[in-house]
Nucleic acid binder design. Structure first.
Lengths: 223, 223
DNA sequence: ACCCCAGTCAACACCATGTCGACTCCGATC
DNA sequence: GATCGGAGTCGACATGGTGTTGACTGGGGT
């Protein structure tokens, strides 16, 4: 998970224009207010004034801490993806041990984290359409995950556990895309969706069949 | 494809408040303007004034034809999904003939239609986050496709061509979701994406392995 | 005693949306 | 051939959210 940590790393000061004195708690208050308000209404229905008042400041003061409403969401998203990266870290290194169990662990962890921050994730999906910054950040995060999966698939093929087929990168993109969209529908309760308690196993099944052509991949190296 | 044709059917007058005289061409002009403007800037950057001026009318007059900017897009979306329904109709009835070829045909047709109206589709994906009407329409369309795929999978299992496994509905949801998200990324050129010329085959591969556990499903009935 | 600057906000400028009321044709009616 | 009604049209206004300006405060450093 080391490559291209640029997004979070290269933009160390997204909120708060610079400087570092007292008002740190105000910044935190804005973030907390956003997360709280998101719990019962969509991002688009929250005005900057709501955020400001919720944090006990006036609207112009809000701009002292964040350049826009979207920047608040971006900071929130940053946290979630960082958490996900941490949770996912290393799981795929031990794939050969027990492929099915490891893939399931990976998917289950993502599920737990996205589910735990569903309001933020859902809001980001909403604004991704209109905000290039969110789009860019999400694209970078996704790229890391795609690369990790791609490498894992190539490793499984190398040890003879998975058959050749699609370019590993395309496969990784397709599977990650599926997860994203399926989780979105599940958490949003929007349109045809997989039940929340089943979603990990449904996704796992498609991943395993797409990668191994079976739902019970071999544990030991083939040769 | 018969069930629940409500969306288009039950709201016969989304544009135009009622009546049916000359101004039909104005309505068409608005639609055409929207499609044209969408070609070089995102939906959010197009104002009602742009639409009105493009159609040679004033902003208040616009409201005579459509209740909002989103309603224009909704009408455009309606056309595209109708076209897709037509193109997809019946393909799955002849699945047993040659499963691989039929599934490929289905995916390729959707690809062609979405690709041909990518601006509209992309715009809809953008506003789906903020507009409940678009969300609802898309959900209904998706529900039809999910049902069709579910039925096809069940039929393939019944004739012994596909192994049992996931509930067919969950599988259908997952695969349709994957397609939606993958196409979006491909057409938007946004983040990790499959190359446009490869996308049909990539999707097909995942569909076949998920449904049949092989990329070469059997042609003749098993017993 | 002074200055600087993080932090604060009232007031303003701007822009997009949506609404109202008045106006103009034009075809139908008596 | 007057008049009536409704489709079609738009100028002007109300509303509401965003982002900016300029002035004020208070405390830490010199």
């Amino acid at each position: 998970m080391s490559p291209a940590r640029t997004p979070t790393g290269a933009a160390p000061t997204r909120g708060r224009r610079a400087g570092r004195s007292t008002g740190d708690d105000r910044e935190a208050a804005i973030l907390a207010t956003a997360e709280r308000l998101l719990r019962d209404r969509p991002f688009g229905d929250i005005s900057i004034d709501d955020l400001a008042r919720g944090a006990g400041i006036s609207r112009p003061t809000f701009y002292f801490y964040f350049p826009s409403k979207d920047a608040v969401l971006l900071t929130l998203l940053d946290r979630v993806t960082e958490e996900a990266d941490t949770a996912a870290g290393g799981v795929l290194d031990r794939l050969a041990e027990d492929p099915r169990a490891r893939w399931r662990e990976l998917i289950a962890r993502f599920h737990a984290i996205f589910g735990g921050h569903r309001d933020v994730v859902l809001a980001c999906a909403q604004v991704r359409g209109t905000n290039p910054e969110v789009r860019r950040l999400w694209a970078e995060v996704l790229e890391r995950w795609v690369r990790a999966v791609q490498a894992a698939v190539e490793a499984e093929r190398a040890r003879g556990a998975a058959p050749d087929g699609l370019p590993a990168r395309d496969l990784a993109i397709a599977l990650n895309s599926m997860n994203e969209r399926v989780w979105y529908a599940t958490f949003a309760g929007d349109g045809p969706a997989v039940a929340e308690r089943d979603v990990v196993d449904v996704l796992l099944d498609v991943w395993l069949t797409a990668i191994y052509h079976t739902t019970t991949p071999p544990l030991a190296p083939a040769d």
